[in-house]
Design a binder for these strands. Structure first.
Lengths: 337, 337
DNA sequence: AGGGAAGGCACAAACGATTGTGCAATGCCT
DNA sequence: AGGCATTGCACAATCGTTTGTGCCTTCCCT
C-alpha cells in the first residue's frame, strides 16, 4: 500500500480511506478517489489482512471445530458453512478434533491464538472448561449439532429426541418389541437425546427397556460392527436395531452380512442420518434425515450476525426437525410360530 | 505480552526471546528464563499469531483449495491434511470452490490476502492464470489430485491412467465389448487420464472406440444419472459402464434402478474411488481405490518441508498407484443367444 | 479586507510481536 | 588500577494497516 501511495503521490492514509469507502467522511476529492482506485485496480492491489487484522482486532476468520470431517454429516456442514462464510467475506479455519478431547483443546488454542473472530464448534461433549474459557475471552461461539444445556452458549441442533422416538415407534409399529440401540459417543448430547427418544418410545408402548439392548461407544463403523455382533450374540437377540449414526448403521450392515443375516428379513434396521448412498444400499436404508444444510446455514448466520452487530442471537436454542425416510430396511415382524 | 513483561519486571524483548527459545543466543540468565516461563504458564499466555505473522511474514497457515468437501474423496484428503498440518503447528484455511472457476479465483485471493504460507490446491483445471499468479508471488504451492503438466508446479496424484486401464481391462476380460464411460469434469487432469486409460485398454484389445460411449461433464450424481440414461437409451447400449467418479457411479446405479436394470446381470459397473459404503451397496461395487491417505500425507509433507526449508521438493511429480477392488458389480457377459 | 468555515490531504500513533544494537555492570587479567 | 571481555538486559525500529488530529488552502460572507 505504501508503494501504491508513493506511485500516486499521496499518503497511505488517503489510499486506505479511499479503499475502505471512507472517502466521503474525510473529504477526499472525487478526482483523487478515481486516481487511487484506478491505480489499485491496475496493480491488482489488495490489502494485507494480517496487518489489517492486527490493527482492527478483527481477522474476518471463523474457526470451525468438528469431530470428523470425513463423516458425511460434518462434511456437509463444513461445505455449507464455508460457502456461507465466504459469501460474507469470512475465511474458515478448519480443525478436525478426531473426537479426542486433548486434540480439541489444542485445536481451540490454535484457533484462539490466530485470533479468529468467532467459533462454530461441535464439541466432544465431556469436558466443557476449554469451551467456556473461549467464551470467557468474549469470542462469539455457537455450537452446532452437539451442545450443552446447562450453559448459556447458543446452539443449533436437530430434534434428536423426536427423530429417535419416531424411528423407534416405526419399528414398534412393525411389530418389533426387542429393539437394540447402537449408540455413538455416550457423552454427546445428540446421542443422549436419541437414547432418550428411543427409551421413551419403548415406554410409551409398554415395552420394558433392557439396559443390555444399548451398546456402543463411538460414532464409528467398527464400533457399530462390534456392538451389533454383541447384540446379535445375546440370548434373546433383538429383531430390530436402531443405529444412532450413519457409520453405526454401516457397521450393523457389515455385521449382518458377515453373519449371513438378511436385512430386513432377519433383522430390521434404521439409521440416524441421511446420505446420498442410503437409497442404494443393500437394502435401501430407512433413515432419520437431519436438515444438514439448514443447521449449517442457521448456525453460520447466527454467528456472523453476532460478529457484525456485536450482539448475541436473540434466541439461544434452535432445534430443527428430522424426517423419517422410509425405505426397505424395516419389515413387519413375522409372528412367532 | 506487554502485560506479562510488566508483571515480571522485564522488557518485552526478553520475554519474547525466552518464549522463542532464543534465550541462549542473547545471554538471558537461567533465573530470568524460569521467571518468564513460569509467569507465562501461570497466566496461560500464548502469543498473538497475527502480530507474529505480521512481523515474521509467516502465518503458519496453509490454504486448502478443493472442489467439493462433501465429496468423500476430498473430505478424506482434508482430514489427513488437517491432521498432518496441525501436528506441525500449521492451521488450515479451507476453501470449497464448488468446481466453479469464478469461486476458485475469489477463494485464492481470499487466501493470498490472508497471507497463507503455502497452498494445497486441487484446481478446476480450465484456467491456470490465477494459479500461476500465486506461484509468481512466490507462495509455495503443491497440487493435489488434479494437476497441470505443462507447468513446473509440483503435484501428487493417482495413476489415473493405469487405474482406468485396469478397470476397463477387467470389464473386457469379462467379455464386455460395448463399454460406456461416464466422465467427470472433462478439463480436469484426472478425468483426462482416466479417459485415456479407458481408450487405451479398448484399443489394446482391438475394440474400436465410439465417441458416443463417452458421456458426462461433472463429478456429480445427477450428471452420472443423466449420462447413464443417455447411454442406456442408445441403440446398441453398452453392456458395461465405467464411472470416472464415485458420485458418477451412484448416478448410474440410480439410473439402473429406475429403469429396472439389474447390476451386474443386465449391466456391469465399475466406479473410480473407494469409500466405506461401497461394499454395502446393492450390489457391492467393484471400484478403483485411490491411496487417499498417502496422497494427502505426501502432499502436506512436501509443502511443509518446502515452507520450513525454503526449498521446493526434489522431485516434482508423484504418482501413486491405484488398486482394483473386486466386488459384485461386474459379471461375465452372457453370450448372445 | 478580515475572519470563519469548509475542503483536501499528511502526520504519526497505535495493533503485538521480533530482533539488531546499545549500554551498564561485573569479572578477569596484567 | 586500568582496560577489555563478558554478562544481562533494555531500546527502538519494523511488519502493513487504520484513524484521530492537525495543517495549509481556498472560498464565502459581511
Amino acid at each position: 500500500m505504501k508503494d501504491l501511495a508513493r506511485d500516486v503521490g499521496l499518503s497511505v492514509s488517503v489510499v486506505s480511506r479511499v479503499l475502505n469507502g471512507k472517502a466521503a467522511d474525510y473529504r477526499i476529492s472525487e478526482q483523487t478517489q478515481r486516481l487511487v482506485r484506478e491505480a489499485a485496480a491496475k496493480r491488482g492491489f489488495s490489502v494485507n489482512q494480517i496487518a489489517r487484522g492486527l490493527r482492527l482486532q478483527k481477522t474476518k476468520t471463523i474457526g470451525l471445530l468438528i469431530p470428523d470431517i470425513s463423516n458425511s454429516f460434518f462434511s456437509s456442514i463444513a461445505r455449507t458453512v464455508e460457502n456461507a462464510a465466504r459469501r460474507r467475506g469470512y475465511a474458515i479455519i478448519l480443525c478436525d478434533t478426531e473426537d479426542d478431547e486433548q486434540v480439541e483443546q489444542e485445536a481451540l488454542s490454535l484457533l484462539l491464538d490466530r485470533a479468529v473472530d468467532g467459533l462454530l464448534v461441535s464439541p466432544i461433549g465431556k469436558g466443557t472448561e476449554h469451551i467456556e474459557a473461549a467464551c470467557a475471552r468474549k469470542v462469539p461461539l455457537v455450537l452446532v449439532d452437539r451442545f450443552f444445556d446447562n450453559h448459556d452458549i447458543p446452539y443449533v441442533t436437530t430434534n434428536n429426541y423426536q427423530g429417535a422416538y419416531d424411528g423407534t415407534a416405526h419399528l414398534i409399529s412393525a411389530g418389533h418389541r426387542r429393539i437394540g440401540f447402537i449408540q455413538g459417543l455416550p457423552d454427546s448430547k445428540p446421542n443422549c437425546e436419541r437414547l432418550r427418544g428411543y427409551r421413551q418410545a419403548l415406554k410409551d408402548h409398554q415395552i420394558p427397556v433392557e439396559d443390555s439392548w444399548v451398546q456402543g461407544s463411538k460414532f464409528e463403523e467398527a464400533d457399530g460392527y462390534a456392538s451389533a455382533q454383541c447384540l446379535l450374540d445375546s440370548l434373546a437377540a433383538p429383531t430390530a436395531l436402531f443405529a444412532s449414526s450413519s457409520l453405526g448403521a454401516l457397521g450393523v450392515m457389515r455385521a449382518c452380512l458377515d453373519r449371513g443375516l438378511r436385512i430386513p428379513d432377519d433383522v430390521s434396521l434404521i439409521g440416524f442420518d441421511e446420505y446420498p448412498y442410503a437409497p442404494l444400499l443393500a437394502p435401501p436404508l430407512t433413515t432419520i434425515a437431519q436438515p444438514t444444510r439448514e443447521i449449517a446455514e442457521l448456525a453460520s448466520r447466527m454467528l456472523i450476525d453476532w460478529l457484525e452487530t456485536g450482539e448475541g442471537p436473540a434466541s439461544r436454542v434452535h432445534v430443527l426437525e428430522t424426517e423419517l425416510v422410509l425405505r426397505d430396511s424395516v419389515a413387519p415382524l413375522a409372528p412367532p410360530i
